[in-house]
């Protein structure tokens, strides 16, 4: 099996897939990093000569004065005060991005569409390209069962997803560290918001270090990409052409983004996989598209979709006549 997976990886490398993905990431990263740098410059200009330390200090004092009358918001205020105090203590300007905070923003924005898209480049023709090249006839007439062939391809896909996420993390770190400096890894980030009964519940809010937050983000991004990759993998088996598979998958992703803004009153839409791809929103505390959706719920829905896609893939692939 290891040998078969090695074969699949060799073919992916031969097709220069990872090189293409790497180049796409670098180009996009450079664009975003440049835009970010311009923006923070503009902010600095607008604010003039005011020292950010004085401003933070003022905000803290302001909040401390309100603590006594804050009531139920007291806890949240305390957390925010802690956060600002940290910035002051460690001499971190919150409006001046370091590598980690740039990576955080970039990952948050790319996890839903950009990363799955990159994974699709690999996944969508893992099987259909063998068919269009005709090599599937050799692949399936060797003394290896069809399910073993398909399993090796799927393992190769899981590896590819990991490689893509790793490449993404590495490249975004390198570029942003180069442009914004390498500081702020332990800066605190607010997380743990929950939406209950239509209201933001801040009782679970806590501070985590930026590197912890990033790690969680990459984990979720990996999972989202794996789900999209698995679904593309299935389409790659069901459809003869890679282009048709790619188109279908893209339509799903985009409709997911649109639906998320529209389905708040269509309750059963929460079982659609594309509405559940916004895992990042649970971390940053944006309200979910449909009331009652939680991180656990979305993870379960996605896992079920993934399992179904895999089952369908194996069922079809092992029985199909190859013409």
């Amino acid at each position: 099996m290891i040998n078969l997976v090695h074969n699949e990886m060799m073919k992916l490398l031969g097709k220069r897939r990872f090189l293409i993905i790497g180049i796409i990431i670098v180009v996009l990263l450079a664009l975003f990093a440049y835009a970010q740098a311009r923006q923070s410059e503009a902010v600095k200009e607008r604010l003039g000569e005011v020292d950010w330390r004085t401003e933070l200090q003022q905000q803290i004092v302001d909040w401390q004065n309100r603590l006594s009358s804050a009531g139920q918001w007291r806890e949240q205020l305390e957390i925010q005060i802690d956060q600002y105090q940290y910035y002051l203590d460690h001499d971190v300007n919150p409006s001046e991005p370091g590598a980690p905070s740039f990576m955080r923003g970039f990952t948050e924005n790319s996890a839903e569409l950009f990363l799955p898209l990159l994974v699709m480049i690999v996944a969508v023709d893992l099987v259909s390209s063998e068919r269009s090249m005709g090599t599937i006839k050799l692949l399936l007439t060797r003394p290896v069962s069809r399910s073993a062939v398909l399993l090796s391809k799927y393992i190769a896909l899981v590896l590819s997803v990991s490689i893509v996420i790793f490449l993404f993390a590495l490249l975004s770190y390198l570029i942003s560290a180069l442009m914004f400096g390498n500081k702020g890894w332990t800066a605190p980030v607010l997380t743990g918001f929950e939406v209950r009964g239509g209201e933001l519940d801040a009782s679970g809010v806590r501070l985590v270090s930026q590197w912890q937050y990033l790690l969680q983000q990459f984990g979720l991004a990996w999972f989202i990409s794996l789900v999209v990759g698995t679904l593309s993998f299935m389409l790659s088996i069901l459809m003869r052409s890679s282009a048709a598979g790619m188109g279908t998958m893209l339509a799903c992703l985009i409709s997911g983004a649109i639906l998320s803004n529209m389905v708040s009153s269509w309750d059963s839409a929460k079982y659609l996989f594309m509405v559940n791809l916004g895992l990042m929103d649970y971390m940053s505390g944006s309200p979910p598209p449909i009331e009652g959706m939680t991180l656990g719920f979305s993870l379960t829905v996605l896992a079920v979709w993934m399992a179904a896609a895999l089952a369908a893939s194996f069922a079809v692939f092992t029985r199909k006549d190859i013409y």
């Binding site: 090249m133 090599t135 003394p143």
Partner: peptide, 20 residues
């Protein structure tokens, strides 16, 4: 039909792996 993006040798190795 063999893999055009691999060398002849890599193609043979690829299929050799599938035999014992």
């Amino acid at each position: 039909e063999l893999y055009p993006f691999l060398s002849g040798m890599d193609n043979l190795r690829h299929f050799a792996v599938m035999l014992r």
